[in-house]
Nucleic acid binder design. Structure first.
Lengths: 147, 147
DNA sequence: TATTGTTATACTCTATAACTATA
DNA sequence: TATAGTTATAGAGTATAACAATA
């Protein structure tokens, strides 16, 4: 069995590309006082009209629930989300975006998306779509494994 | 402009997929006392018959040269690589794999590749090739930018 | 003057364990 | 007995700045 060169190693390429896009996104988000991890929590909160539990956030983001606590703390301190008691389970606290949070995420998302698309400009639009679909299938299969 | 859901965001998917494959690779490499960063340095050293300068390693890996120093320190302490003076430039130290390093990287690479392929098994072989090619083009374009 | 390797430092991210309150 | 949230801690990864030796 012949070994490929490191430059042809999918894991290595994923790490490099992920690092590139994360740096790009963080640079775009700095204007809003956000980094990608906080931004991803805000993003999900905005898209969930009734909010999400921190457990749900951890699941979607692939993070440990203990990490989500700190991210929500920071977003709450910045006034972008708030924690509300769940009407059905007193253990659960729902993370809900504030009006400010919704505005910030809208502007931040457009800036970040634009910068990341530019970072990926070596790929055509349809190639970026292909990349997204391939990655999404890997993530879904991993999520299915851990269920 | 309509915002996509986070699950359709290429940056987010890259981060998740990179994390998944890095964890998988680290688990496979633990048997050899390696982690992906150290492994990637060893990998390049093995493939360069006359060794590489730490500056070259940093360039290929997308790391800061100061980080490469520590990775080479660890590999040298484990007897997998050694630093040799460059015959042409007394500032430069060439990182060269030892015989042990070559053996270890061969076995480690086969284990890690096998595990990562399994982690990506939602994609067919040809889809994994497509993914690799798309990512490689992004990395090359970024490398060209910083030149 | 510029480049190679190095040391140092601070910050972010990741991984785990343990605890509380509720279910 | 299990689950949601939380606190704490340690280790790994990332980002910069500054310095000595050499080009």
């Amino acid at each position: 069995m012949e070994l490929p060169t490191l430059a042809d190693n999918v894991g290595f390429l994923l790490s490099r590309t992920s690092g590139l896009t994360a740096r790009t996104a963080n640079a775009a988000l700095a204007e809003y006082g956000l980094r990608v991890r906080q931004y991803s929590v805000l993003y999900l909160a905005v898209d969930a009209p009734d909010g999400l539990s921190q457990r749900e956030l951890a699941g979607v983001l692939g993070l440990d629930p203990s990490q989500v606590v700190l991210l929500v703390d920071e977003l709450a301190a910045a006034g972008l989300v708030e924690r509300r008691p769940s009407p059905t389970d007193r253990r659960t606290r729902l993370v809900v975006a504030t009006a400010t949070g919704r505005q910030v995420r809208g502007r931040a998302a457009r800036d970040a998306n634009s910068q990341v698309r530019h970072r990926l400009r070596a790929l055509s639009d349809s190639e970026q779509d292909t990349l997204r679909d391939l990655l999404a299938r890997v993530v879904r299969s991993a999520d299915a494994d851990s269920t």
